[in-house]
Structure formats: C-alpha cells, structure tokens
Simulated assay, not measured.
Amino acid sequence: IKRRVCIITKKEEELRQFITRDLHSGATIYEATGAYHFEKHNEIITIVDKSEYQKLMKFINELDPKAFITVYNVSSMKYQPKIGAF
C-alpha cells in the first residue's frame, strides 16, 4: 500500500531535500491559496511506501510540528517514463 502525503510547511526546502535526497523519492509542488486570508503557500505532494511514510512523518514532526499534513491511501498508480523528446 502506498500513501499520498500532502504537506504545507514553512520549512519547504528542507522537506523537499529530505524527500529527494534521503527517501530517493519524487515530489510535486503546487501553489495553494488559503481560503480565509488568501495567503499563498506551496504544497508538497509525494507518494511513499510504509517504511518511507514512517521516516517522512518522523522527519516532519521534528522539522515542523505545526506543518499541515493530509494523507490518502493510494489503491493504484500508473507511471509511464518518457521515451525520447517531444
């Protein structure tokens, strides 16, 4: 089972580096706008397995205990690597 983890944190760069360097995983960053105050934030989204999830959550709790995190179970994934250039 994989998990899709969405994180908003003030320590975005440190988190991005941990995901790519330590977990050897990919991530996507979206710009999000808060509905109450229209503040702009970046949301980091990554998909991890069980052991990566445990490492990620431990890291986030130490890095930024106030981070906003949502977690979804992923039932299936499809990945097509690029073949050649467009």
Rank of each mutant, 00 (worst) to 15 (best):
E13Q: 10
R4D: 08
N61C: 14
T28H: 01
M77I: 15
V48K: 00
G26W: 02
T46C: 01
L56F: 06
H24A: 14
I7S: 01
N73Y: 15
Y30T: 02
I45M: 09
D22F: 12
I69V: 11
R16A: 10
Y36H: 09
A67I: 01
A35T: 04
F38Y: 14
D64A: 06
I8T: 01
K82Q: 10
I83R: 06
A85I: 03
E43N: 07
M77E: 11
R16C: 11
S75Q: 12
N73W: 12
Y36D: 04
G34M: 03
P65L: 07
K55L: 12
H37M: 10
V74N: 14
Q17T: 15
E14G: 07
M77G: 13
V48E: 01
E43W: 05
H41F: 11
T46M: 06
T70C: 08
E52V: 08
M57D: 06
N61R: 13
I83N: 10
H24Y: 12
H41Y: 12
T9C: 02
P81F: 00
I69T: 00
N42E: 14
F18C: 04
K11C: 04
K40G: 05
K10W: 03
L63T: 04
D64E: 12
Y30N: 03
F18L: 13
R4V: 00
T46G: 02
K66N: 09
H37A: 09
I1M: 14
S25M: 11
D49Y: 14
D64T: 09
E12P: 07
R16M: 13
E31G: 00
Q54G: 08
E43C: 03
G84T: 02
L56K: 06
I69R: 02
L56P: 07
E14P: 03
R16E: 07
Y30D: 05
T20K: 15
H37F: 11
K50L: 15
Y30E: 02
N61G: 13
E31K: 12
H37W: 11
R16F: 09
N73R: 15
F59W: 12
T33R: 00
Q54H: 15
E12S: 10
E39S: 02
L56G: 06
A32M: 07
I45R: 05
G84N: 05
I60R: 00
E13I: 04
I69N: 01
L15F: 04
S51Y: 12
S51V: 11
I29G: 03
I60K: 03
I44F: 06
G26A: 07
T70Q: 04
S75A: 14
Q80S: 08
K82H: 00
